[in-house]
């Protein structure tokens, strides 16, 4: 039993390393075949993977269906843009601050929202996010409807971030670090307690765990990581746009998480890749790609109701005794 588990985790580690290596050399490959354009596309994909992963931590491990994640995503982006506007372009200052701002925002919103549960939690997080959206589009000093553009990308030591390939590697490093961090968290005591709370909140409360604080901390971690993704997306397009804060953004992230696999470590990554690739491919083929996307979503969900990552895992993993994916 222990051996099987060990084999399985070793297998997973090798798969992850192979994937990481493949993604690392990807820009060189794309350059070699003359498709540099796609480096920027894959960067965007990885940033959304990071944002979806942060939401998946809240939804999948904390069991909180948050419909306002765009608020933290956008807050990170705007923090970087506003600092840039005021002459602070160092990534070492701006990105941690973006994370901090998003975390603080998550703390405030979480404190109030966690009084509610279920569908009420969905709606109250949505309401908070929408209020922040309206606040930003009415603040003319910060760009209003047009958003706030960045004069250049952030500076990070002597790394030329303006080079798309270099920026890609930085994004990849952020994503890999985040996945590693979340992997450690979910296997640590905190993560175990968190998952137990997701399964049975009242029992954990009866056992004396401060359920509310655990959930709040989970919400804040998710928000903070979304802030990092926001900082990256602002740099990617050199724009902090109010559309990052809009509720459709929260919806997109949630779709990515559910399609990828709620509560699966790589669920966010798989979901983001699926959705963005589908969008890219379908929009090449048909004018009505929105409808095609809707149908594709239906198809995916009927084939894999627990999400693609767990489905894939069950199909191709040698051991059939995988942890059952949770909703």
């Amino acid at each position: 039993m222990g051996g099987a588990l060990y084999r399985q985790s070793a297998q997973r580690r090798w798969a992850a390393l192979a994937l990481l290596a493949g993604l690392t050399v990807l820009p060189l490959l794309l350059q070699a075949v003359g498709h540099e354009f796609y480096v920027s596309f894959v960067s965007r994909l990885l940033i959304f993977a990071l944002a979806a992963t942060s939401l998946n931590f809240v939804v999948g491990f904390g069991g909180m269906i948050a419909f306002g994640h765009a608020a933290f995503f956008g807050a990170g982006a705007y923090t970087v843009a506003i600092l840039m506007e005021n002459g602070i372009s160092s990534a070492l200052v701006a990105w941690p601050l973006a994370i901090a701002v998003a975390a603080l925002l998550a703390l405030g919103i979480g404190l109030v929202s966690l009084r509610t549960r279920g569908v009420y939690f969905i709606m109250i997080t949505l309401a908070f996010a929408q209020m922040i959206y309206y606040l930003f589009i009415s603040l003319k000093a910060w760009g209003g409807d047009d958003g706030l553009s960045l004069a250049s990308r952030s500076t990070l030591g002597s790394l030329p971030l303006s080079n798309d390939a270099v920026f890609y590697w930085v994004v990849l490093a952020c994503l890999a670090a985040t996945l590693l961090l979340l992997d450690r968290i979910t296997h640590a005591r905190f993560g175990r307690v968190l998952q137990a709370i997701r399964e049975n909140e009242s029992r954990m409360e009866a056992l004396g765990y401060p359920v509310h604080s655990y959930k709040l901390l989970c919400f804040v971690i998710g928000g903070a990581l979304a802030g990092l993704a926001g900082a990256l997306i602002a740099n990617h397009g050199q724009l902090a746009s109010p559309s990052l804060l809009q509720w459709t953004q929260s919806g997109t992230l949630l779709v990515m998480v559910i399609v990828g696999g709620v509560g699966a470590l790589y669920g966010g990554v798989v979901g983001a890749a699926t959705l963005l690739l589908l969008e890219e491919v379908l929009s090449h083929f048909t004018h009505h790609w929105h409808a095609a996307l809707g149908l594709a979503l239906l198809f995916v969900v009927f084939r894999a109701p627990h999400g693609i990552a767990p489905w894939f895992h069950r199909r191709f993993s040698r051991s059939k005794k995988n942890e059952a994916p949770r909703e």
Binding site: I65, I258, V259, L295, L297, L298, V301
Partner: peptide, 10 residues
């Protein structure tokens, strides 16, 4: 959560 996706898809 899964029916949410089909709802959005529909």
């Amino acid at each position: 959560l899964t029916p949410l996706i089909t709802a959005i898809g529909m």
